[in-house]
Write a protein that binds this DNA or RNA. Structure first.
Lengths: 157, 157
DNA sequence: GTAATCTTACTCGGATAGATTTTGTCCGAGTGGGAACGG
DNA sequence: CCGTTCCCACTCGGACAAAATCTATCCGAGTAAGATTAC
């Protein structure tokens, strides 16, 4: 069980975008330079966030990415799931119904107990991530950090 | 983030082993037949549980696998981590210290806030899995299931 | 009949190929801004 | 001076290779049980 490396990229990128003035954008190239990441690869991953409804993109000069919703409405869970997909890590393939030990259909009405426990753990994980929004993250930054982020992102001196 | 398919195999295998009479064993071949799994592959995965201290193995005729500890002391977390490894899914590579937006070392005394939140979520997941032991799982089975499991595992008619 | 020995079949364990998913790169379609031009 | 038109550079978006991980398979080392043989 391993999250893509790009998860870290996108969590930080989203945090940076949350510090922009409303209406402004940052391009994939700017973000890549800001974090010293492979630009092409980052651009590809940012699309996942657009598909997931976390970011919105605009093309053309002056275009780029911005948050698709207000920062308080974007949770870490939304970002992580947009990157990694929405399928739970444990998938029950009902091996209890196969092979020599196959259980009768009658005992398989209820879902597999093991699958249920794994699902519970996954829900605990999701709940924990859903508790924090991008606004919470930005609020924990030192004062003055957002303006510095904006300055360095846009490439101003 | 995806757990290996073998996770399901081994959770079920451990559950079956927990239903054996103390002192008896089941071989990899028997377990593979019981669940209709590729025998060679299952044998390889069972080794991970031995290395993780969940199972102990004995060779020779009549040998096989058994629980390395009493069932109440074996949690689902121990099994899952033995299969999947102990490294957390999110790994912070400190990209906040790289590129144009690199933060001064002074602001990096405290661990990255995002990494901290991800670690918290992982801990919630682990705690959830640590709450359930193999004994709990076996206790939820219908009465008579353990003896049936033993019968079918050993190949008795 | 008993004990020691030997053979034999069965077990796990690690090393070795194949398949699938993830990562990284590239080029094309579309767009908004800016310059040029005419009124 | 102002409005319109045109061009161009910049943006994202999806299609294409390389790497890493997981799955599946195989064969060898070791062991415990059982049969055999000598006493």
């Amino acid at each position: 069980m391993k999250l893509p490396v790009s998860t870290e990229w996108l969590l930080h990128c989203a945090t940076s975008l949350a510090q922009l003035e409303p209406g402004t954008t940052a391009s994939a190239a700017q973000l890549a330079q800001y974090y010293d990441l492979p630009p092409s690869s980052l651009a590809k991953q940012l699309q996942a966030l657009v598909r997931g409804g976390v970011l919105s993109a605009s093309t053309g000069p002056g275009g780029g990415f911005r948050l698709a919703r207000p920062a308080p409405e974007i949770t870490l869970l939304m970002i992580v799931e947009a990157v990694d997909g929405f399928s739970p890590p444990y998938e029950c393939r009902e091996i209890r119904q196969r092979g020599r030990g196959a259980l009768p259909a009658e005992e398989c009405r209820a879902p597999c107990v093991l699958a249920r426990r794994m699902a519970l753990a996954h829900e605990a994980w999701r709940s924990s991530l859903a508790e924090t929004s991008l606004a919470d993250i930005v609020a924990e930054l030192p004062p003055g950090a957002p303006s510095r982020t904006r300055r360095r992102l846009t490439g101003a001196p």
